[in-house]
Write a protein that binds this DNA or RNA. Structure first.
Length: 290
RNA sequence: GGCGACGUACCCAAGUGGUUAAGGGGCGGGUUUGCAAAACCUGUAUUCACCGGUUCGAAUCCGGUCGUCGCCU
């Protein structure tokens, strides 16, 4: 079994290369992208076209409705699933947290529970509560880091054990044996701008209107992401289309920088497309251990 | 040309005599163990247009210069 992890900042050209490599090496594709999982979010997420998806199915694309939950573990499960059915897998995407979960497996933690979480959200001082049940996590987490403080509390509420204990128990599985290809390119900023113009022409605004028509969509995770929040402001009449696109371009670039930061932290050196092709060839020519 | 207002970081902006010059945006750096395109942390003006004066002490008061804006001629 061989897994190629094809990552990189947004707009680096991962998708096209992934399809090319899948075809060349007869590999199956798993998307590592927290946004393209949603049906109906096509333009803003730069999702591969329906034609490409029909010809080269990607696991984890179009698997949820806007508003439905999807988490890292769902992604990891999808990689496992693909691996059980096919000897060659290409994981392609730019969500660093998902990619990292392959190299550094998650601990055995329970899934999020909306009911429990809602109760914890109403605590007057979650961080103080955490300091009581799990002092180690409390001291590690900044009091303002509400998301993680609540999660630590949630883990304890559900399992009766602390996050600290569960982390100490080690990962739930061995890391995936992956060949990493972190694709990057110098002219990323220009590509982001160009892609945004293409999105505009491809019906970006219409897509936002369509999604917004679904009840409750406005408050969902993907619509609060940088690809949609500014477009929503435009559709609501608060800012012009040009301004919305300007802010989206700015935030997209900012995201790309974050992705690079993550890659640095994981020790993934940026390479160009040709080097990535070479790495793929090496990855898929290796004789696995069965 | 006259009168008036203003000039604080890349941008917006608080501060109108006394500790190391608020805050926000942007930009940079970082964290990330089931919301991660989210969330959080953090750095970013030895100096207030410039020159001189008053004062123990000035971004704050006074004079001049330059600049911007408004009104008038």
């Amino acid at each position: 079994m061989s897994v190629l992890l094809l990552g990189g900042p947004t707009a680096a050209g991962k998708s096209d290369l992934a399809v090319e490599l899948a075809e060349q090496h007869d590999a199956v594709l798993v998307s590592a992208d927290a946004m393209t999982v949603y049906r109906g979010l096509d333009v803003g997420t730069a999702k591969p076209s329906p034609e490409i998806l029909a010809r080269h199915p990607h696991a984890c694309i179009n698997v949820r409705e806007v508003g439905e939950a999807f988490a890292v573990a769902d992604f990891v499960d999808a990689v496992d699933h693909a691996l059980r059915r096919h000897p060659r897998v290409i994981v392609v995407g730019g969500t660093p947290f998902y990619l990292q979960a392959m190299a550094r497996p998650l601990a055995s933690l329970p899934p999020a529970d909306p009911t429990v979480r809602a109760q914890l959200e109403s605590l007057p001082d979650p961080h103080a509560s955490l300091a009581v049940v799990d002092p180690a996590s409390a001291s590690r987490l900044h009091p303002n880091d509400r998301v993680r403080v609540i999660r630590a509390l949630e883990v304890h509420a559900i399992t009766g054990r602390t996050l600290t204990e569960l982390h100490a128990a080690g990962p739930r599985r061995a890391p995936f044996d992956v060949t990493v290809a972190w694709l990057d390119r110098a002219e990323l900023r220009t590509r982001i701008d160009h892609r945004l113009q293409m999105m505009r022409e491809a019906g970006y605004v219409a897509e936002v209107r369509r999604v917004l028509a679904q009840p409750g969509a406005r408050a969902t995770k993907p619509l609060r992401s940088f690809a949609y929040r500014h477009m929503v402001d435009h559709v609501d009449g608060r800012i012009s289309l040009d301004e919305a696109l300007r802010r989206t371009a700015r935030d997209t670039w900012r995201f790309a920088r974050k992705q690079r930061t993550w890659a640095r932290g994981l020790g993934w050196e940026p390479i160009h497309a040709d080097a990535a092709r070479g790495r793929a060839a090496a990855c898929f020519s290796t004789i696995g251990d069965g």
